[in-house]
Nucleic acid binder design. Sequence first.
DNA 1: CATTTACCGCAACTCGATTGCAAAGATTAT
DNA 2: ATAATCTTTGCAATCGAGTTGCGGTAAATG
Lengths: 136, 136
Amino acid sequence: MQTEEEILKIKKVKNTAARTVVLRHLLSLEKAQSLKDIVNALPYTDRSSIFRTLKTFEENKVIHSIEDGSGMTKYAVCAEGCNCDPKDLHYHFYCTNCDKTFCLFDVPIPNIQLPKNFKLQQANMVVKGLCDNCNR
Amino acid sequence: MQTEEEILKIKKVKNTAARTVVLRHLLSLEKAQSLKDIVNALPYTDRSSIFRTLKTFEENKVIHSIEDGSGMTKYAVCAEGCNCDPKDLHYHFYCTNCDKTFCLFDVPIPNIQLPKNFKLQQANMVVKGLCDNCNR
DNA sequence: CATTTACCGCAACTCGATTGCAAAGATTAT
DNA sequence: ATAATCTTTGCAATCGAGTTGCGGTAAATG
């Protein structure tokens, strides 16, 4: 497991107070977080600073964003070595009961045969249902 | 190809002026449309009427909605026989250049092996890139 | 025909996302 | 070390998609 400082150094993002605290927070959680989640968890950091931090992180591939259909974009730290290329894709699982979003790193994404002359750049694959905790 | 009237009858949705015009519009286009797209295309029908019509259609499985990451939910008419079950899923392709969303009916979705005790209900699979028209 | 129910149009509102701006902090040049 | 420059931060305001309340109209029911 890399530390915040190591990740920021590798991804060439300048280390600032807000960035450290946001990244540390994301690393401490196993599930993707919305801006609101993060704002609530970090009461001493301003919403717009967190917002801009997330944008910076996304541009520099420190984190990736997921649109899970909850109405709020969620963010999760990229796996080590991730370049956010199509090959780094993974499914996300959105629990319709508890509103949590999981990264399914272990489930491979198949090769998708696109129509002629279509070019793949990215994908947002969200599987919805009940997580183990809510499926009782 | 079914007509608006036939579809509404089959799906047990009462036929009204707004519903007919919205459904006819969706059927006339091959790509998924946002609320805004539809509002712009139908200047004599009110935004909230179109909105409620889309909700009614979705509840009754006349159309399905897609979150393609453009910031706007898009809507497309369900294929004949679709029940919006997981087995009726298909990929959507979002063109990052022209902002259009395509239903990829011909590309099969594989079986996804979820973690233990997770239950699949639905999925939103959006592949992003360039469509044939924009990939030059 | 009277009554009830559903639908439509207008305007207002909610809330997540985003931006303008000035102050504070960090970096570079002198 | 100090001045000039660029970056980041915090606050407040704005934007826009989605949604809702409500009165009026149309359709269905008795």
